[in-house]
Design a protein around this nucleic acid. Sequence first.
DNA 1: ACTCAGTCTTGTCAAATGAATAATAAAGAA
DNA 2: TTCTTTATTATTCATTTGACAAGACTGAGT
Lengths: 212, 212
Amino acid sequence: MTTDAVSEPEPKRRSARSQETRERIVKAALKAFSESGFEGASTRQIAALAGESQGLITYHFSTKENLWKAAVDSLFGPFIEELNARKAALADADIRTQLRLLLIFFVRHAASHPEQNRLMMQEAQSETPRMRYIAETYLKDQYEFACEILRQAIDAGILPPAPHIHYFYIVVGACSRLFTATSECKYLTGDDAMSPAMIEAHAEAVANLILR
Amino acid sequence: MTTDAVSEPEPKRRSARSQETRERIVKAALKAFSESGFEGASTRQIAALAGESQGLITYHFSTKENLWKAAVDSLFGPFIEELNARKAALADADIRTQLRLLLIFFVRHAASHPEQNRLMMQEAQSETPRMRYIAETYLKDQYEFACEILRQAIDAGILPPAPHIHYFYIVVGACSRLFTATSECKYLTGDDAMSPAMIEAHAEAVANLILR
DNA sequence: ACTCAGTCTTGTCAAATGAATAATAAAGAA
DNA sequence: TTCTTTATTATTCATTTGACAAGACTGAGT
């Protein structure tokens, strides 16, 4: 429904071109923050990556913290939206099918957006205000939803009983770890973890292991 | 100013004392590097954490890179040793028991040494020379061993057939993710992921899910 | 008592950092 | 056109970074 930046209902005095540079910076920031962490990434590095001057970051985002927030929003926003769409589409399917399709979706998503898991892990180890932001803005709902699915799966005898929190992190880890360790995988087997064949094989392996 | 510790004639040889400071620095470095990554952590921060002066780091390790290597060695060395001991002790057990005990060991280890997984993830996303060092020095053997166990488990019908690499990262992720996201977990459920009860429950959940 | 190598502290360096400022360019609105 | 808001570059500043240097302390061997 909502188109991205370039429509002109309310230009708000901000030219489309500036919006484009903003997005270019956010994209570069996402890459840098997920790779080097908040402190490890520098605004100059990000600006260079985006092909813009460092001063522009101060202009558009005032602080590094704000830039980080914008990057996170650009990542989680569409994810939550897509997840909600899937939820709605799957509402009628039996729980086993729901779980399988969701697992496959999570694997594909972890592969196509490795920054998301990388960024999470950068912050999830200590109680930074940034972690708090992600958790309260995006994660809480996602976890509630996961719990609901898990409860049904356990009730249906598809999964052995265990507190939901454990399954949550088991699934997140199982789906994503391969794609947050691509260079490690390259060294171990020579395989490219990001190749479509590898992604689908991983989705199959995860789904077949969990749903037996 | 002369002696400050007058009471006991400590038999500490000078070299022994210096060895202790060295280890204190390495320990602090491990914490800092695993939390903030190689670039994110500063030698001054590490020195302060260890209660020593920053110059001492240059004296003992010359470069930040060397300090990082020393930290990694202090982490992986004992781990590999313990793993080999377990391997030997389990050699006669049936494959199902081997797998179960290894899984429990991995969960406990991930919990008691969260720095290991954090450190890996900091480097595993891009092909740094540091990643190469870990992979070739420590990971290769570990992966070979995992493949052997997995092969047996699949042959015995305990696991559905799939390329070993997928199981490797599924297991690593499932065992460790909870403990690399402790603050996230805190926000989601209020639970302390590092509590013994939680650790054991996670080990149970992982083992019961994988071995059915 | 006196080395003297090993250990550790303090101070300093150039480079890089996040942020702020001033100056300039572009784009609408009047 | 002119005026005013927005967008961008270039410059500057205080702080922090990794590395280094120069000196001071310690204690085992002589």
